[in-house]
């Protein structure tokens, strides 16, 4: 891969910070503005390095499809944070006019083709997009993001088989956070139970499989970048297992109306009583880790880093304000868009 220049490194850090701050604001909305967010949200905190390191490898025109844990990708692609927050608040100014909410963000103009709220079901969508890219011959590459739980879905194996067979221009990025909602992967995955990297699954489809430290954006950039180059060259797909640690619980509390929604503690603590695992993950938090590295390498000064932090905080405060001030949709709009 081409060496990342200082501007690019700072861009990566900035996007990581934007995602972190956005997710913090989503989480805080449950406390600061109860009732504003309905339903279910899933946060990407902990996966910022993996997301931005991956997105940094893309060219304009490339595409991404993802899961319900979807706030990070559009932010890195340049989607307006205001519209994203308004969507999560169910407002007319939302990215999808309040029809989708947190799990169903879409921004096709920037290549974010969408998500599925059902585990694994976005993988075939992404594979179909890669098929379109292949036959259009514009050199587009698709990134398909999903979690480790998805890899037990038939949709995963069905898709990877076809992609390998057809040499589709796609990179499958599995964000392995070791949890399926509240189930640990070794409880449900034969490879995890055997202590093997999940990238080994690629061999079933005659596809390269690589495991990378998803907390290191440069490592992710190198690995995903090589896979993207391979895909763009027409040599077919790659499965990248990006090891991340989700720093929040799977999602906010699932509760019937009347019970205040909030984020419970991470499942490592709340379900398995393993505080040490969680605290170790906090010590390895990719965002401060990358900041320290950039400062140490002389790419950024501490003051510059603080400056970025304050800009990002202002941007996300504005997104919250925008969302709160955007009106709720007119009720009868519910019948729009049923048919094109």
């Amino acid at each position: 891969m081409t060496e990342l220049g200082n501007d690019r490194l700072v861009w990566i850090y900035t996007q990581m910070l934007r995602i972190r701050e956005f997710e913090e604001r989503v989480k805080r909305t449950f406390e600061d503005h109860p009732g504003v967010i309905r339903g279910h949200t899933h946060l990407a905190d902990g996966a910022e390095a993996s997301i931005v390191g991956s997105v940094a490898t893309l060219n304009p025109g490339d595409q991404i499809l993802a899961t319900y844990r979807c706030h990070g990708y559009p932010l890195a692609l340049g989607t307006d944070a205001n519209a994203m927050m308004a969507e999560i608040y169910g407002r007319t100014g939302g990215l999808c006019g309040g029809y989708g909410g947190s799990m169903h963000l879409v921004d096709p103009e920037r290549g974010f083709l969408g998500t599925s709220g059902i585990v694994g079901q976005g993988i075939p969508h992404a594979t179909g997009a890669a098929y379109a890219a292949q036959i259009r011959k514009r050199g587009q590459v698709v990134l398909s993001f999903f979690g480790d739980g998805s890899t037990k879905q038939g949709a995963f194996s069905e898709s990877l088989n076809i992609a390998s067979l057809w040499k589709l221009p796609i990179v499958y990025v599995m964000e392995n956070n070791s949890y399926n909602v509240v189930t640990r992967s070794e409880q449900e995955d034969a490879n995890a139970a055997a202590g093997e990297p999940l990238a080994i699954k690629a061999t079933a489809f005659a596809m390269p499989g690589v495991t990378v430290d998803g907390a290191d954006p440069i490592a992710v950039y190198d690995v995903v970048g090589a896979a993207v180059e391979r895909a763009r060259a027409g040599d077919g797909p790659t499965l990248v297992e990006s090891k991340v640690y989700r720093l929040s619980a799977h999602g906010n509390l699932i509760a019937p109306p009347g019970v205040p929604l909030h984020y419970p503690e991470h499942e490592a603590i709340s379900v398995f009583g393993n505080r040490e695992e969680y605290e170790a993950a906090l010590r390895g938090d990719p965002v401060p880790r990358f900041r320290a590295r950039l400062i140490e390498d002389g790419v950024l000064s501490a003051e510059q880093a603080d400056g970025i932090g304050s800009e990002v905080r202002n941007e996300m405060q504005a997104a919250v304000d925008f969302g709160l001030n955007s009106p709720l949709p007119a009720a009868e709009r519910a019948l729009d868009h049923v048919y094109a």
């Binding site: 076809i162 995955d189 139970a193």
Partner: peptide
Amino acid sequence: VQAGHFHESVNLAAL
């Protein structure tokens, strides 16, 4: 073998 339920079943049988 290409049906998703093949891999789903194999994973569980192995696990």
